[in-house]
């Protein structure tokens, strides 16, 4: 099983900033855990996962309007807001 993770890439994907010490620590721990996970790679497994849980349409929700929280409640819990909207640093086109 391929391990070969790139801790910088993972941190970027997960939106985490890691110090040099943290990088070393987590790399070491991930290596250890992933080595143990190799039993999965060797195991004889069914070709596909069964769908464990299936629901019928009766479990779906009827299209009946419920309550809205309202902008006041939304902005009350937001770290920063303006005019009923949540404010964040300026987003440039497709920054993600």
């Amino acid at each position: 099983m391929a391990k070969g993770f790139d801790i910088d890439h993972l941190a970027k994907l997960a939106r985490l900033q890691l110090s040099a010490e943290e990088k070393a620590l987590y790399s070491n721990q991930l290596n250890q855990v992933l080595t143990y996970f190799e039993t999965l790679a060797r195991a004889d497994l069914p070709p596909a996962a069964n769908v464990a849980q299936v629901i019928e349409e009766s479990a779906l929700r009827a299209d009946i309007p419920g309550q809205s929280l309202g902008a006041e409640a939304v902005t009350k819990i937001a770290p920063a807001s303006r005019d009923g909207q949540i404010s964040v640093p300026r987003v440039v086109d497709d920054e993600s």
Binding site: M1, A2, H9, F37, L40, L45, A48, A49
Partner: peptide, 17 residues
């Protein structure tokens, strides 16, 4: 993540079955 999901996540779902 891309390139690893089949080896880990997808295999884990099969093991779970």
């Amino acid at each position: 993540s891309a390139g690893y999901a089949d080896a880990y996540y997808v295999r884990a779902l099969r093991a779970r079955s």
